[in-house]
Design a protein around this nucleic acid. Structure first.
Lengths: 253, 253
DNA sequence: TTATCATAGTGTATTAAGTACACAATTGTA
DNA sequence: TACAATTGTGTACTTAATACACTATGATAA
C-alpha cells in the first residue's frame, strides 16, 4: 500500500503524464434518392473536409455530449446516435495541432495536446434533416458514399470504421427506421440495404427476408401517380422494431 | 470564422470546461476446469472488488496502454485484448473520488476529476497465466462467472457489457484460441461455449457446427489415461482461425 | 389504340443450415 | 463381468438461403 505522500506524488505525476484530451467525432449517415450519404464539414482556410466533432463537458454524459455536439455543429437534433469505437493513436491529432499552432500561443493552446476520440455514428432521415454549418465551418454538405473527398486527421479511418460497423449490424439488427421517411416502398428499402452493403440484392429474396423479420406494416393503399405499376407502401412497426433492436435477429447459438 | 483572440479564449474555456480524465478498465476472462472466470482485484481497505485499470500515457497508443496496464496490474502479458465500449456517465467515478479524498489535498488531487473509461476485454489461457497483484492491490483472483462479488464504481456494468459483447461475438467470430490450452477435447471446447452462453448445448450439433467452421485440427492420438472412453484431441488451425477472425462466419446478406 | 418498356408483385424448386434425437464403443469401477 | 459414465457417430425432419421465371400495371411512343 502507498503512503499519503506517495499518493500525492502519484497524483502530480498523473497530471503530467497522462492523456487528458477527449473528443467526439460523428459519422452522420443519411439516405436520399437511392443513395447513402455522409455529412461533412469544411472551413474556407482548409482544403480537407472533416467530421462534425467536439468535446465533452465536465458534467455531461457522453451520449448527451454527442447529441449536443451534433446539434451545434450541424443543426441536426433528435437523431439515432451510437458510439462504435475509440480512436487513440498518439499521432492522430498532429494535423489538428498544427492547424491552430500559428493562432494560439503554445502554452495557452489546449488543442496542442494529444486527443483520444470517441467515434459515434448517426442515422438520420434525410428529408427531415436540414443541416447548417456552425460558426467554425463554412460548408456543411451531404456527400455520396462513393464520392467522399479527402478528410482531415484520421477521419477517413473513423468514417470507414463506422461503415464497417453499420454493415456488420445489418446482420443482426433492423435498420431503416431512422433513415427512411415514414412510408416507403419495398424497392426503396432495398436500395438502402444495397447502398450500405455496396452490392445488388435479389428483389424476391430481399422481400421475403425483410418481411420475415416482422417489423414492417403494409398500407392498404399503394402509392399512386408515379409511372409504372403502383408499388405498395410500407412503414415500420415500431414495437416489433424496438424489440428486434434489443434482441437481435438470429440468435446463432 | 473566429478571430485569434476568440480562439485563445476558446482554448482557455476548453481547458476549464471539458472532461480531461481518461482511464482504461479491463475485463479479463479465463477458462479453467469447465468454468469461465474473471480476474478481479481488491485492496485491504476496501470491501468491494474492482477491475484492473489505469491511465493512458501521453505518447502511447490506447491498445498499447491497455496491454501495459494489464501487465502492470496483474502480471499478465501478451494476451488477446480488445476495446468494446466507452463508459462516460458523469457520476461513474464518484466513489473513486471519495476514496482518495481523505488522502490527497483537493487542489492536488488529479483523481477528483470526472473520468471517462475505455472498456477492454481480454481472453487468456488460464493455465499459462499466473496473475499477481501490483503495489496498489492486495488480492488478485479469478472468480467464477456465477460468483462475482460486489464491484466498485460502475465495474459491474462494465463487466456485464463485456460479457454481452463476448456472447454476441460468438455468433460471427471464432473463439477459444486465447482461452484453451494448445490441445483440448471437443467436450472441453463445448464447455467453454456453454459457460460463456450460460446454457447447455447439444453435443452432436455442437461438434458438427464447430467442425464445419474448419478451424480445428484433430490429432492422430486420443488422450489416454483418463477414465471412460479416450477422447480425441483437437487444436486450432491458426491460419484458418485468423482468417475467420477477420472475415467472420456467416455473412448474412 | 395498342405495342412496348420499365417497374412491381408473386411463386417454386433446390440447396444448405439448424434441430431433435438414438445407438454403439471404450474405460474404470462395483 | 455387469454397470455407469463418457465419447464417437449417424439420420430424419424442419427451417432458412439461394436461384430463377412468370404475371400485372401504368406511362409513353408508334
Amino acid at each position: 500500500m502507498l503512503s499519503k505522500q506517495q499518493l500525492i506524488e502519484y497524483s502530480d505525476d498523473a497530471r503530467k503524464n497522462y492523456v487528458n484530451h477527449i473528443s467526439i467525432d460523428c459519422v452522420v449517415f443519411g439516405f436520399h434518392e437511392g443513395q447513402m450519404k455522409v455529412l461533412l464539414l469544411k472551413t474556407h482556410n482548409e482544403e480537407k473536409w472533416y467530421l462534425p466533432g467536439g468535446f465533452v463537458l465536465k458534467e455531461e454524459p457522453i451520449d448527451t455530449a454527442a447529441n449536443r455536439i451534433l446539434q451545434q455543429r450541424t443543426g441536426l437534433d433528435k437523431v439515432f446516435l451510437q458510439q462504435f469505437r475509440v480512436f487513440g493513436d498518439p499521432d492522430r491529432s498532429k494535423v489538428h495541432n498544427d492547424m491552430y499552432a500559428d493562432m494560439i500561443p503554445k502554452e495557452q493552446n489546449w488543442f496542442s495536446g494529444r486527443f483520444i476520440s470517441i467515434g459515434y455514428y448517426a442515422l438520420v432521415d434525410f428529408s427531415g434533416a436540414i443541416p447548417h454549418p456552425d460558426q467554425f465551418s463554412e460548408l456543411c454538405a451531404w456527400r455520396d458514399l462513393d464520392d467522399i473527398p479527402e478528410l482531415q486527421l484520421d477521419h477517413q479511418k473513423i468514417y470507414q470504421s463506422a461503415l464497417d460497423t453499420l454493415r456488420l449490424q445489418l446482420n443482426y439488427q433492423p435498420i431503416g427506421y431512422n433513415l427512411m421517411p415514414k412510408e416507403f416502398t419495398m424497392p426503396e428499402l432495398q436500395k438502402l440495404y444495397e447502398t450500405i452493403l455496396g452490392k445488388k440484392l435479389d428483389r424476391r429474396n430481399f422481400q421475403r427476408r425483410i418481411l420475415g423479420f416482422g417489423i414492417l406494416t403494409r398500407s392498404e393503399e399503394p402509392r399512386k401517380g408515379g409511372a409504372h405499376k403502383a408499388p405498395y407502401l410500407y412503414s415500420f412497426d415500431l414495437e416489433n422494431y424496438q424489440h428486434a433492436l434489443t434482441e437481435g435477429f438470429k440468435g446463432g447459438w
